[in-house]
């Protein structure tokens, strides 16, 4: 098989897709986190500030989902078809919450009636919570594996099959992680009383995350043996969980010193490192077949042709820096605290 700098093309594409979804989790993660806290703000003006904190940038963040989906579709079409059709209902629900999240942000401030704003506040917050949770449920089921036949078709049950204990735990942990991450983002964008209030939220968020992370990890260690093989065989890899530990431990330390910029970098790093662990647990598989091992979907049996992967590596090489450049420019433009008087269109 052809290689590029010693790695074959499906492996490169595995890294590209992984990198894009890590970027998505970090970027839209704080949007979801901010949304999950939304109903804890009591005053209309606080909610408006919290929304304005993400309003100029969430569109750009959501792009990572669209690109991630496109690269997954193009690079691993077999996996794309199987995963999405197997988890039909969870993905449809994900879409509906994506719709409600988006229109809630857009429509909330277009009217002054309290009931109107309250309705969209609820819609925004519930959607954000459900999106964070569903992303975790999908990840949990990928780690858990599914029954697949020799054509890589899903042969298990419907919606409730996917609400297994491990996936629910991963869902809750994602929500907690994003809430911690989102609270820190909001601290970077707010001041005064609201800022003080979010500091309290952050403490609750950190506790929520650490507890749910420990429970989920313990459950995984006991019940999901297949994920641990790679770590038992290559003990050097234990350095990654250790780095995760350091990264998580850094967040409360930095938060207590009110160094939220750094704390944000470490919650982002935590998200990335957790996904690195997922990548090692799976590689070279994309989806475990639970009953018949040979039916597992791997990056090799799911990959598009090498030619296509090469073309798309070109896309990424040209487009990737451009996307980062746009993002840098937009974040720089809206850097600093939200000021309700100068925003808006």
């Amino acid at each position: 098989m052809e290689t590029l700098f010693g790695l074959d093309y499906p492996t490169w594409w595995f890294l590209v897709v992984g990198g894009l979804f890590s970027g998505y989790a970090i970027l839209d993660g704080f949007d979801f986190g901010a949304g999950a806290w939304h109903m804890f703000f009591k005053k209309d003006s606080s909610r408006e500030v919290a929304l304005k904190a993400i309003d100029p940038t969430w569109h750009g963040n959501e792009v990572w989902l669209v690109i991630g989906g496109g690269t997954l579709f193009a690079g691993f079409p077999v996996f794309y078809g199987t995963l999405f059709s197997a988890m039909y209902t969870p993905f449809i629900l994900f879409l509906l919450f994506i719709i409600f999240r988006g229109i809630s942000i857009k429509f909330r401030n277009m009217e002054d009636m309290p009931w109107w704003r309250k309705m969209w506040d609820w819609s925004y917050s519930i959607s954000s919570i459900m999106l964070a949770f569903l992303l975790g449920v999908v990840l949990g089921n990928i780690l858990n594996g599914m029954p697949l036949d020799e054509n890589f078709e899903y042969i298990g049950g419907g919606f409730f099959e996917f609400l297994n204990p491990f996936s629910i735990l991963v869902g809750v942990t994602s929500l907690a992680l994003f809430m911690m991450h989102g609270a820190i983002y909001l601290l970077l964008k707010t001041e005064g009383k609201l800022y003080n209030r979010i500091q309290v939220f952050l403490r609750a968020g950190m506790a929520f995350f650490i507890i749910s992370y420990i429970i989920t990890t313990a459950y995984g260690l006991i019940n999901l043996d297949h994920l641990l093989v790679v770590f038992k065989e290559n003990q050097i890899l234990f350095v990654i969980p250790f780095l995760v530990f350091l990264s998580i431990a850094n967040v409360p330390r930095l938060a207590s010193k009110e160094k939220y910029g750094w704390a944000f970098i470490f919650t982002s790093l935590t998200i990335a490192l957790l996904l690195v662990i997922v990548a090692f647990e799976l590689y070279p598989r994309l989806l475990w077949s639970n009953d018949v091992q040979e039916n597992s979907i791997t990056i090799y049996n799911a990959a598009a042709s090498t030619k296509t992967l090469k073309i798309m590596m070109g896309f990424v090489a040209v487009g990737g820096p451009l996307v980062l450049l746009y993002s840098y420019f937009v974040y720089r433009t809206f850097w600093g605290k939200v000021d309700l008087n100068t925003e808006g269109y």
């Binding site: 690109i67 989906g69 579709f73 077999v78 794309y80 078809g81 994900f94 296509t308 487009g319």
Partner: peptide, 29 residues
Amino acid sequence: EFEFGTNWATYSRYVGDIFGSALAAEGIF
């Protein structure tokens, strides 16, 4: 984008190379 996978999985596998790359290009560029 999601419906190609959820409702048209066989189609997705069949055209992923081509249709998928156009979608990916749309996202990136």
